[in-house]
Structure formats: structure tokens, C-alpha cells
Amino acid sequence: MMTRSDRAMRQSLGFHLVAASITLLFAAPLVWVLAASLRQPGAPPPARIAWLPDPPAWSNYAHIFELLPLGRYMANSLLLAAGAVPLTILIASWAGFAMAQLPARARYALLTLAVVVRMIPITALWLPRFLVIKELHLIDTFAALLVPAWMGSSPLFVLVFYWSFRRMPAALIESARLDGLGALAIWARVAMPLARPATVAVGVLTFVQYWSDFINPLLYLKSETRYTLSVGLRVLQQMDLTSWPLLMAGVVVMLIPVILLFVLAQRAFWIEDQIGGVHGN
């Protein structure tokens, strides 16, 4: 006869089997890509799925940096993200803080605005935004790529900070106000130190947004010296479609910082009671 603990163990085993196969399904392509990037360029197509090739062609990575100024593109992408992250955190957290503190009516109006703007398809803004950028004489500048940071990069980030600040004990802010502290001082000394997980999450998502951005560089950049990594990958693709190992090496270069950041910061996304803090309550 099966005991209760037997059944629990079976259930747990079943869960881990299912979850592990899902993990494999979602993550296996990345391992494949890594393996593919280490194949000898020009080798005949593999007869079956090859894992780590022998010997691995690490020289592919050196080669793509010779083919294209990928180092420069990478520096451009990093520079862009480095500018966007602090600006976004500053503007989004200010807005979120103000929203959390304002009287109910203003709060609801602003919440509605943020949600509505979040719902506008960005595709619908490419063309007119291009014309605005053109009027501002920002075509072919980094500023054109950085411009979304002006509105906190995404209304979602403002909402994340809003939720995070709303969850703070009201008494903390009340007592700071009784001490006569101004809004900026309360934001800096009371609110932000308690909003670490939200700040980390917004920071990571902002980095990924600008590091990955393809459409804005495609629309606004003209000089090759200003290209970012995503445009660089597109150029690499157009150079030679048949050299998969080199192209996949480029993909890996673009993936590494994103995966690394995500793995390092994922606690801010997943810890049980912080999920509400990051993604809504």
C-alpha cells in the first residue's frame, strides 16, 4: 500500500520532471547557440545535432571583431544603456513617488494616463516621433536614442515605483513630513532606500530595453561609427548569410550581458513578497 509520504514524493518527482523539461525547452536553444558559435566556419552541415564541437573554434569570436568594429558598437550600446538607466530611475521614481503621495483624484487620473500610454502601440509612434526628432535636429545623434528616458522609458516603470511606494508604511512618510522635510528629501532619504528591489528591477529592464533597442537605431542612426550592437548584428547578417558560426558568435556576444544581469538581479523579480512590489498589487 502506498503511504501518504510516498504519494507526496511521487507528486514532487512528477512536478520536477515536468518543470525540468520546460526549463530544457526554454533554455536549450541558448546552449545550442553557444555550441553553434564554436563550430568551424565553412564546415559541412552537421548530420545530427552536435553539442560542443571538437575542437571548439574560439577564433570565431576574434574573427567577428575583425570583420566589423563590434567593439565600438558594443561601447556605443553600453554608453547608451549607461545613460538611460540612471535617467530612467530618476524620472520614473520621481513620478511614481509623486503619484503615490498625491490626493486620490489626481492619483487616479495619473494612473489612468500611465495605463493608457502603456497601451498605445509604439509602432503607431515611429513615424511622428521620427518627425519630431528631425525637427529637433537630433537625427544621427545618441540623444535621439536616449530620448525615451525623458518619460521614464516606459509608463510601466513609473507604475512599478508607484506600487512599491504605495506599499510602504504611510507612517514613515507621515513622520518625515511632520519633521518638515520637503518632497525631494523624503524621496531621497525615506522612499528610495526602501525601494531597492523596484530600483534593481527597473534598472535591469531599462538596461535590456536600450541594449536591445533595434528600431530606434535603425530609424535615427546614419553614421556607422554610432551604430549599436543590434544594428551591428544586422550588418553581420547581411554580410554573409551562410556563415552561421560567426553569426551565432555575434548573437552570443549580444546575449552575455543580458543573461548575466538577469541572473544576478533575478532575486529582485522572484522573491515571493517582492513580486507584488515589482509587478503590481
Partner: peptide, 10 residues
């Protein structure tokens, strides 16, 4: 979550 953070071009 990982496929969601992968840059679009990649």
C-alpha cells in the same frame, strides 16, 4: 522568463 529578455535581433 529568459526568452523574454533576449534582445529582439538576437
Amino acid at each position: 522568463y529568459i526568452p523574454t529578455v533576449i534582445p529582439g535581433v538576437a
